[in-house]
Amino acid sequence: MESIGKITSRTVVMPTNDIDTDQIIPARFLTTTSRDGLGQFVFNDLRRDSNGDDIADFVLNQPQAAGCAVLVGGKNFGCGSSREHAPWALLDYGFRAVISTEIADIFKNNSLKNGLIPVVVDAEIHQRLIANPGIEVTIDIETRTLTLEDGSAVEFPIDSFARFCLLHGIDQLGFIQQQLAAIESFEEQRSWTP
C-alpha cells in the first residue's frame, strides 16, 4: 500500500443515515474475482435507473461532485455486509475518505486496510458539513485533524497502528508474519487444540 499523509478535497454530501454496503455496491456486482474496476458500480442503484441511464438528481451525477474525494455520509455509514468490495469500489471511484458521526465496525476496518480514511466527527461538525456541501476540507493523518474551509480544525480518532501503517505504507500482513515464532509457540503451548 502507498503511504498516505494528507487529503485535501471538496466534499460530496449524502446525508441519509444507515447507508449500507449493499447500497455502496449491490451484491450482483460481487461475482468478480478481482478487486479492481469496481468504481463503475459504486452506488449503482442510486446512480442509474433501470435502463442504466444516470439519474440526474443523484448527488454523484451532478457536475460539482466531479473530482471530490471526500464523502460525507449520514450516521452508521457502511453498515451491513462485510464486503470489502465497498471500500474497493469507493476508492476506485476516486474517494479517499468518508466522514460521518458513526462508521460501522467492519467497514471501518476494511477501509483502513485499503487506504480509505474513516473520519468520525461529532454531531455539530457533521451538521456543518451537511449544511455546506462542496466545501474544501483537509484530512491530516499525521496530526489526526480535519480542517474545515475556515481554517478551524478538529481532531478525529484513528487507531494508532492503522495510522502508522497508513503514514508509512506498511502492509499489516507483514507485521503478523514477523510474529511467527509467537504464533508457533502459542500453538504448541495451548491447553486444548481446535
Binding site: S82, E84, L173, I176
Partner: peptide, 16 residues
C-alpha cells in the same frame, strides 16, 4: 471480516 483479513488468516491463522 473483510477479504484482506481473510488473507491474513489464510497466511498466519491470526488476525490483528
Amino acid at each position: 471480516i473483510g477479504t484482506t483479513e481473510v488473507g491474513h488468516v489464510l497466511a498466519t491463522q491470526c488476525l490483528l
